[in-house]
Design a protein around this nucleic acid. Structure first.
Lengths: 247, 247
DNA sequence: CGGTTGATTGATACACATCAAACCCCGTGG
DNA sequence: CCACGGGGTTTGATGTGTATCAATCAACCG
């Protein structure tokens, strides 16, 4: 997993430091040094809400969460997805109020970490600060990659990128990546990717026809990805329709 | 400048804590506690580059900068704009390498802050950490707002939102907001907003026809905004074409 | 001056949204 | 057991917002 300094041949997403061990280590660290309050959640439960006073950061221990931003007109927009080891509520630090809703999409457990206590302990245990900074930094990077996808990629590539992101997230947590079930509806995926649910459906169908992915259940939420790098080449093929010399 | 807890009647962007005093105070703090290395730059100068080893964070003292992300195919994408008091290079903390190019768009001065030194001093002066965390948190919020604009707003609204963002940024730094000169070409704006330069031009022309803005020079880079809230209502008018009851 | 760079405006093309129909799965209750 | 209904998905037909292509113009500059 080499960082691309000269030739970015491998456009992989996650950093070497962010893997199973890193995640487990961070969770252990938190548990050990802080009064974490464990909270069980079920699909649809709201962990924290936009506008609410900021006190705690939330770290995912298990399950899977979405961040929802409310537009001015009241329509919601998914702006982030979070798995084990990810932090939520970070955007609330600046102005003392949360900036998004964090919503559980499955049963799971989040740890509420009082921000004050984290800062206190951070003075004695710098690794805690490192974990916080790493989380924010990764999040920043991720958001910018998202932004770029939205600006530059056609729908098919965005959907493929989404699957690759999901597979990478599973990989970083030591889970199998060749087969998993999407825990979001087409509408939610489309909302996250800035397109309609029909476009998501069509993109998935095209990938299935191209044998980049395969569906393994009748509800078409279980997805099989024989080779993750097939997704990458699919993305590139979609972006460069006509291979012609640089004139 | 009230934070919206119940009724978000005022969809303003920046937090109360982020204003002229906050910015000056932060800069003073840095200067006082850290070995900042001042660096003068001119338009086009690259402050830090993607892939380069991460050592320092950069804080803008004057001038104005863009963050450029390189896509897999090598095309650049503007993913952020930064003014006095803003931090750059934050995305490099996680994996030890910068994730974007930071490019000056005007003559100015950045302060290079060794990250290690910042952490050291942060242990003795928690206000330094607070500044860092605030910067990252704001940035996160901002990126997500961007993301949502890209997903949900038509081009006209995005361009209007861009002008409002710029005006807000100037306002937060105590500068006049009723008139300023855009220091970006239409192509750069379009790149940042995920549209073509022609679309930017057309959107600006429409706003000028609607007297939401006015051009004051022949090159059409100086823009006059009599009332910033006219931009807001313009955005809303573009988003809700047919005003009909909720059925 | 001619040459270059950026901005505007119009004509046309296309990717994606929208609208619409049908299907599948699954739970509920007669 | 089957009938029914509703939420999610797929697929097709049509519409439209924006990209693309192209021409013109203004400002600047060596």
């Amino acid at each position: 997993m080499q960082v691309h300094s000269d030739a970015p041949a491998n456009p992989s997403q996650h950093s070497a430091a962010f893997d199973v061990r890193g995640i487990t280590e961070t969770l252990r660290l938190l548990q050990q040094h802080l009064p974490v309050q464990r909270r069980l959640v079920h699909a649809g439960d709201v962990v924290c809400q936009v506008g609410q006073k900021f006190n705690c950061l939330y770290v995912v221990n298990s399950g899977f969460f979405k961040l929802v931003n409310l537009s001015a007109e009241g329509r919601g927009q998914v702006v982030g997805l979070h798995f084990r080891g990810d932090w939520m509520g970070l955007e609330g630090i600046a102005d003392g109020h949360y900036g998004c809703d964090a919503v559980a999409m499955d049963t799971g457990e989040v740890w509420a970490i009082p921000y004050d206590a984290l800062l206190q302990s951070g003075l004695r245990t710098p690794a805690l600060l490192a974990a916080l900074h790493g989380a924010m930094s990764r999040e920043l990077k991720r958001d910018r990659d998202c932004l770029m996808s939205l600006c530059t990629l056609p729908v098919d590539a965005r959907v493929a990128g989404f699957l690759r992101y999901w597979a990478d997230a599973l990989d970083a947590r030591g889970l199998r990546t060749d087969q998993f079930t999407l825990r979001m509806t087409r509408a939610e995926i489309g909302n996250y990717l800035g397109m309609t649910l029909e476009s998501v459906s069509r993109a998935l169908s095209r990938m299935a026809r191209g044998e980049v992915i395969a569906f393994t259940d009748k509800a078409r939420r279980d997805i099989q990805i024989p080779r993750v790098d097939a997704l990458t080449s699919f993305i590139q093929s979609v972006c460069a329709p006509e291979p012609q010399a640089t004139h």
